[in-house]
């Protein structure tokens, strides 16, 4: 008669088992550390990297602590053991922008961030307890370190010397790590997100940029004019040379013509210079003594003789 009822036992047992299982165990994700306290005392820590926590045993306060590396399922005593979880991944802490003063007394607005992680949750629990509390501490430490280092360099170096700033930040990380060692924290990296000059400076920068560009524009235009002038004058020069050479050549050719003509005349006239003189005189008469000319001649002249027929 009660045969079917034994089937109902199965879910009941399962429910009880799940409850018991949850009471007796806790799970630690691969992304977190866990700290187990019994009556307020830490007695067990589940951590990502045990080697970073071992040192804690030297502290008499934590001498008996059980350190387990890894993640997964762990046992606890219900109601007595309390489990607290801490992020074991790399955390980004974006620090608010702050004004710092460089060695050359320039004010620079720095916006930086830090990468850090909780390496020792036991120490972290007693010193910081929450990430928010750690942020406040980190900000103080990093800011004071930055301030110290930046006070030793000029604004120009801070803004544009990558290698110097990288080295400086590495030093800051080292120094800050020394300070946060006791908090169970490791700072991986500190980086400057932005270095801006205060907004009041912008007007000056814009003014300088403007005048710089005006200078460039002026230079381009003047260069253009310079180049244009060079090209023009070069063209003029070439033109003048071409024309002058042509003039010389033309005169030479003319001279050749003239010389050739003279040679021809001379050759011909030298056959009988006396006759040429006579012939040429007649031509001259013909040309010179045109119409409406008044001629006064001596009665004894050759001309007259001819005129009066050898009187």
């Amino acid at each position: 008669m009660r045969a079917w009822k034994k089937w109902l036992v199965v879910p009941a047992v399962l429910v009880v088992a799940v409850i018991l299982f949850n009471l007796l165990t806790f799970r630690v994700y691969v992304t977190e550390h866990a700290v187990v306290t019994r009556f307020g005392n830490v007695y067990k820590a589940v951590v990502a990297d045990a080697s970073r926590v071992e040192g804690i045993r030297n502290n008499p306060r934590f001498a008996g602590i059980e350190i387990v590396e890894g993640s997964g399922l762990f046992f606890k005593i219900p109601f007595i053991d309390k489990v607290e979880y801490y992020n074991c991944r790399l955390l980004t802490y974006d620090v608010d922008p702050r004004e710092v003063t460089t060695r050359d007394k320039k004010k620079v607005i720095l916006d930086n961030y830090a990468q850090w992680r909780i390496v020792n949750p036991v120490l972290f629990r007693v010193t910081m307890r929450t990430e928010a509390a750690a942020y406040v501490r980190l900000e103080d430490i990093i800011y004071s370190q930055l301030n110290q280092h930046i006070g030793k360099i000029d604004a120009e170096v801070l803004i544009s010397d990558k290698d110097h700033v990288t080295a400086m930040l590495a030093e800051i990380v080292q120094a800050a790590n020394a300070e946060v060692k006791d908090y169970g924290i490791e700072i991986i990296d500190v980086r400057i997100k932005r270095t801006d000059l205060p907004p009041e400076n912008n007007a000056n920068i814009f003014n300088r940029m403007r005048t710089e560009r005006e200078r460039m524009a002026m230079q381009y235009r003047s260069e253009g004019q310079e180049e244009a002038q060079k090209i023009r004058s070069e063209a003029d020069r070439q033109a003048a040379v071409i024309e002058a050479q042509a003039y010389a050549e033309a005169e030479r050719i003319r001279g050749e013509g003239e010389a050739e003509a003279l040679r021809i005349y001379a050759q011909a006239y030298n056959q009988d210079p006396e006759f040429y003189e006579f012939y040429r005189t007649l031509q001259a008469y013909r040309k010179a003594l045109q119409d409406n000319t008044t001629l006064v001649i001596d009665a004894d002249s050759d001309f007259a003789k001819f005129l009066f027929g050898h009187r």
Partner: peptide, 26 residues
């Protein structure tokens, strides 16, 4: 520059013409 070259050619041609003319005349 081309104009100058034109002028130059013209001047030389004129001179050549003068030369030929002068010789022919003689």
């Amino acid at each position: 520059i081309p104009r100058a070259r034109g002028n130059a050619a013209e001047a030389i041609n004129k001179a050549e013409a003068f030369k030929e003319q002068r010789i022919a005349q003689a």
